[in-house]
Design a protein around this nucleic acid. Structure first.
Lengths: 112, 112
DNA sequence: GGAATATATGTCAATGCGTTCATATTTCTT
DNA sequence: AAGAAATATGAACGCATTGACATATATTCC
């Protein structure tokens, strides 16, 4: 029911040594959480085209302002976006081009 | 409270036209779901090193057989892995090298 | 200073996801 | 054919996540 069977010792050791630490696994899942929700993907793909304030983001995407704010905070905490304040208006933008890269990888996969 | 304000018409149209369709958004979130869970990441990173049967996967990673089976089914449905039967033993392997690419992008982000 | 605008936050209901237990299915062995 | 081994499946419980409403905070304008 739970015997390790076919793996030779070498490979087994290799795998056991290369298994990512629990902490890195956590950080990775946090990172990929960025992309695992429709609303967030929508927002990210919009921000990939142009930096935008919260209202515009909500308006263009037909989303609730509250929803957008919540998700922006999440994305901020995850390091996906950053913002810049100008008076009452706060403009958000993609922080790292890696974000765009990953989105493209996703699109690439769909084309497969 | 919800006026689009700062976006010029051109950009607004651009964004509205380039917004990914609901279906593509769904497919994308499905794709990224692959990477948004610790257990799955663990399994994928193990399979990135060597193809493996279910028992070995569970054994090496100290995971419940049932859990592994459930997640493998998910990964199979998402197109991340495929399998090969040999008698009672079923060997799973990464289906697409894109999976590895994306994992690397994640690691790259952590290094940032 | 007061009203209005832009954004953020707290809370909560609803939904979705992951794990586990029990059990089913498939294949091999004798 | 029976039992054992490997894997899959179904149901249920617990937990996290999402989005909506109400409200708070910050900033500008008059």
């Amino acid at each position: 029911m739970e015997n390790a069977l076919l793996l030779d010792k070498r490979t087994q050791n290799l795998v056991e040594n290369c298994i990512l630490s629990d902490e890195i696994l956590s950080e990775l899942t946090f990172f990929f959480t960025i992309f695992s929700d429709k609303t967030r993907l929508k927002m990210l793909s919009a921000l990939a085209i142009s930096r935008m304030c919260v209202s515009d983001l909500a308006g263009v995407l037909s989303l609730n302002q509250t929803t957008v704010s919540h998700q922006l905070r999440l994305l901020k905490n995850l390091g996906a976006v950053d913002y810049e304040r100008n008076g009452k208006v706060i403009t958000y933008f993609l922080k790292d081009e890696l974000i765009g890269d990953v989105l493209l990888k996703g699109m690439e996969f769909l084309g497969t």
